[in-house]
Every structure is written in structure tokens, then in C-alpha cells.
């Protein structure tokens, strides 16, 4: 824009700042709440500047847990991390392979295979929750990481994403590889994979956060507290029947639950942008 209108610009920035404040305030509140003791929060006069209980709250939450549900948050985070990473990597692996098959190989019922994969888009976990539970239970996978991860890997989003990306890669690249003596696997490893880094990063971010935030599925298939994920942990801390809710611990846990997804986004975003700038076909 060539024109310079200071007032309009000021209004635009003001609107954005107000927006950011509205979105950021609850997060700020949670972080502040994690630095006070129960009494301060409960009496309703919590100051907006940090208190002095941060060290106490975080070490207690991480290694000891709430008063009633005594699972250390560190363990829940480990569970969540295993689940989220399992889903992200598992999904990337099967998606990229299935897209590779669908795009680059001629086999009978290729179209059918693609459409079968496509249809699973219309059947997210929530829709097929009973049959999926039944299968996982019959396989004896309740309270296992496999049971937590596997059903959430099976959906078409990643396959579609990679398929669309592969379709933009010129055929000549495949042909040049053929003439250069690269077989299917080598073409995949030497050409397709390096070109897909950006797409892989995108899918990783989406799937990691998707996996980390799962609530319904872990709630259904985990019964032992040692298999509990952090999202369920937070919920458990808030709904206490007899005792006073330990809000400072719940908030601490919530803040801790935010950290890995935020780190993933921050770290992956750099890779993202790098990939976007570098990619040229």
C-alpha cells in the first residue's frame, strides 16, 4: 500500500490488540492461578500479578498430583506424549505410504482403494466409537498404548493431503528417476520424501495436537490411572465430590498441558516457513 493513513492504521492495530487480549486473558489467568495457593483463588480476590507459590505448585503437580487423584502430572504427560507422538508418526507413515501407492502405482481396484480410504473421512472416531471399542477390547488392547494410538491413526486426512501434494509433483521427475535407475523405493526415499518435508511437518503439527487433545477415546479405553492422559487428568482434578477443588493444581496442570503443543507449533513453524520458502517444483 502506498497510502499512509496513521489513524486508520492505529485503529487496525487497536482492533488486533484488543482481539489478542481477549484471547490471551484466560491463558494469562490460568498461568497466574498456578502461582497461588488454594485459599487465595477460592476467596475470589486473586491478584493479576504472580504469587509466590509457583515452585510449590509445579513441583507438587508434576511429581505428586492432586490431593485425591494422586497421579503425578509428569506421568500423565508422558502418556499423552507417547499417544500424541504415536498418532502423529503412525499417521504420517501410513498416510505417505498409502498416498504413494494410490498415486504412483497401477494396480487393480486402485480407484476403489482410494475411495474406501476417502470414505473413512466421513467416519471419525466419535461415529464409530462402539464398534471400535469392541474391536480394541476383543483384541485385548484396553489399557495399552497400542489401543490408545491405533484407532486414531486410521483416517484418511493424511492420505488425502499427501495425495494432493504428490499430484503436484511433475511426472517428469518420476520419469527422470526411472531413467536414472531408481526403482520405486529409491524414488520414494530420494525424491518424494525430501520434497514432502513441509507436508510432513504440517501433518505432524496437526496430528500431534489432535492426539494430545484427545479426550473421549482415552476416557473410554483407559481404566488404570497409570495409563491416564493429561487431558483426562485435568478433568478429574476439577470434578471432586467431597473435597475442595484444588484450583491451583488444576491450573498448573492446564498450563503444563499447554506447553508441548505450543513448543511443537513454535518449533515446527520455523521448519514450515523454511520449507515453504525453499520448495519450488
Amino acid at each position: 500500500m502506498v497510502e499512509n493513513r496513521p489513524f486508520a492504521q492505529f485503529m487496525a492495530y487497536l482492533t488486533l490488540v484488543i482481539g489478542v487480549l481477549i484471547v490471551a486473558f484466560p491463558v494469562y489467568l490460568a498461568i497466574m492461578a498456578s502461582t497461588f495457593d488454594t485459599a487465595t483463588i477460592i476467596n475470589g480476590n486473586m491478584p493479576l500479578i504472580p504469587g509466590d507459590q509457583a515452585g510449590e505448585n509445579y513441583s507438587r503437580a508434576l511429581f505428586y498430583g492432586g490431593k485425591l487423584a494422586r497421579e503425578p502430572v509428569a506421568m500423565m504427560m508422558a502418556n499423552s506424549m507417547i499417544m500424541a507422538l504415536g498418532i502423529a508418526f503412525g499417521k504420517i507413515l501410513i498416510s505417505i505410504l498409502s498416498a504413494f501407492a494410490v498415486v504412483y502405482f497401477q494396480f487393480p481396484f486402485r480407484k476403489t482403494a482410494f475411495w474406501v480410504i476417502f470414505i473413512t473421512l466421513m467416519l471419525p472416531v466419535e461415529v464409530r466409537i462402539y464398534p471400535t471399542y469392541k474391536i480394541v477390547a476383543d483384541l485385548g488392547l484396553l489399557d495399552t498404548y497400542t489401543g490408545l494410538i491405533m484407532p486414531l491413526i486410521a483416517s484418511a486426512t493424511g492420505t488425502l493431503l499427501f495425495r494432493q501434494f504428490f499430484m503436484t509433483i511433475p511426472d517428469e521427475l518420476l520419469e527422470a528417476s526411472k531413467i536414472d535407475g531408481a526403482g520405486a523405493f529409491r524414488f520414494f526415499k530420494d525424491t518424494l520424501l525430501p520434497l514432502s518435508v513441509t507436508t510432513i511437518a504440517a501433518l505432524f503439527v496437526i496430528q500431534f495436537i489432535y492426539g494430545w487433545n484427545q479426550y473421549l477415546w482415552p476416557l473410554l479405553i483407559t481404566t488404570q490411572s497409570s495409563m491416564q492422559t493429561i487431558v483426562i487428568g485435568i478433568k478429574k482434578m476439577i470434578t471432586t465430590t467431597d473435597a475442595l477443588t484444588e484450583w491451583q493444581i488444576a491450573m498448573t496442570t492446564a498450563v503444563l498441558a499447554m506447553v508441548p503443543p505450543v513448543l511443537v507449533v513454535i518449533f515446527m513453524q520455523r521448519l514450515f516457513v523454511k520449507g515453504l520458502v525453499e520448495t519450488e517444483k
Partner: peptide, 27 residues
Amino acid sequence: PADRDIAMVFQNYALYPHMSVYDNMAY
């Protein structure tokens, strides 16, 4: 194609975008 002892130059060059010029030729 790889065993026909031929080399091909494509219209859009079909260079491997992620490889250096050296690697493109050496591949």
C-alpha cells in the same frame, strides 16, 4: 528405461529440486 543405456532431456528439465547441481548429475 534405466537398462536401455539412454539418457533423456525433458522439456521442463525435471531436475531434482532438493539436490544440488552436482547431485543431480551424479544421481
